[in-house]
Design a protein around this nucleic acid. Structure first.
Lengths: 154, 154
DNA sequence: ATAGTTGCAAAAGCTTTGCAGTATG
DNA sequence: CATACTGCAAAGCTTTTGCAACTAT
């Protein structure tokens, strides 16, 4: 699916969500959604705030946080805590389900996909009587480039 | 394995770690290790700090943070970020490898175990050329009791 | 003796909140 | 035109840091 189409559809979904919940369709909210869906990869609130500022889009940090929460609630954005104190986010519409592998050395985040995670979820849910809503699987390790650097550094 | 023995062995491992790294064996460090291994379940820094204070063990927050970092480094304690801004910890020696399922409603944390996670790790490591150090798999959902409450609340 | 550690308090960093002004429905 | 939303700044929380005093080696 091409990027423009994805942005359009995400915008539509956001509108539906706002209307259903009697929330207002403010330009700030759409600007933030747009910015997120134009980016690739993961970002934190500060990076998002900076991008917006750079583009002369004047939104306050409060609005960024507020809007991110809305977007998380309607599943257009996913929130991650990769072991840091600062949350990371990524767009999630039209994105296949995936998990993350994080380099403990350089912080690089790579996505991967394994169907077996679904089986684990089903089994755990049944065994422990939980209704699973979402999951987070993060593998932490050293990426190829960092392994090379470490060897060389000696 | 009984609790006293585990504490003894964890203490021994900590001593080895401190000696190997030319760090000092201070009473505060051992007091914190002891407190952690006497507790069950997960805890945050504030809960740990409070327990210590309650027992008239006088340590500062700075020392708690410092010592927790050491314990994480020598694998006697594991650090978790269950989607909150506050990190959670748990003892990890003599504990079988396990993952977590967290109730999004009441915050309860339950442990579970599935060998398939090992296969996923191996495959992702090979595919993406990462050397995996550790992982974190968290399932978020609604636990049995909270499901009942929700139904009743209507 | 001499560093590594501690405690305290201040500072830093991320996130939330209060409030007055603004703009949406 | 009622009130949800915004921006700003202040406040709140968790975590880190600086420094003088202390103590393990």
């Amino acid at each position: 699916m091409n990027k423009t189409l994805i942005i359009e559809q995400a915008t539509h979904l956001f509108t539906q969500f706002l209307e259903k919940n009697h929330l207002r369709k403010t330009p700030e909210r759409y600007a933030i959604l747009h910015e997120i869906y134009c980016r690739s990869d993961h970002f934190d609130t500060e990076q998002l705030f900076d991008s917006l500022t750079l583009k002369k889009i004047n939104v306050s940090r409060a609005t960024v946080y507020n809007t991110l929460e809305l977007l998380v609630n309607c599943n257009l954005v996913t929130k991650h805590q990769f072991g840091k104190n600062q949350a990371q986010y990524e767009k999630s519409y039209s994105y296949k389900q995936h998990d993350h592998i994080i380099c403990a050395e350089c912080g690089k985040v790579v996505e991967f996909c394994d169907p077996r995670i679904g089986q684990i979820k089903d089994m755990a849910a049944q065994l422990l009587n939980f209704k699973i809503i979402y999951h987070s699987l993060n593998l932490y390790g050293i990426c190829g480039p960092c392994q090379t650097i470490k060897k060389t550094a000696t």
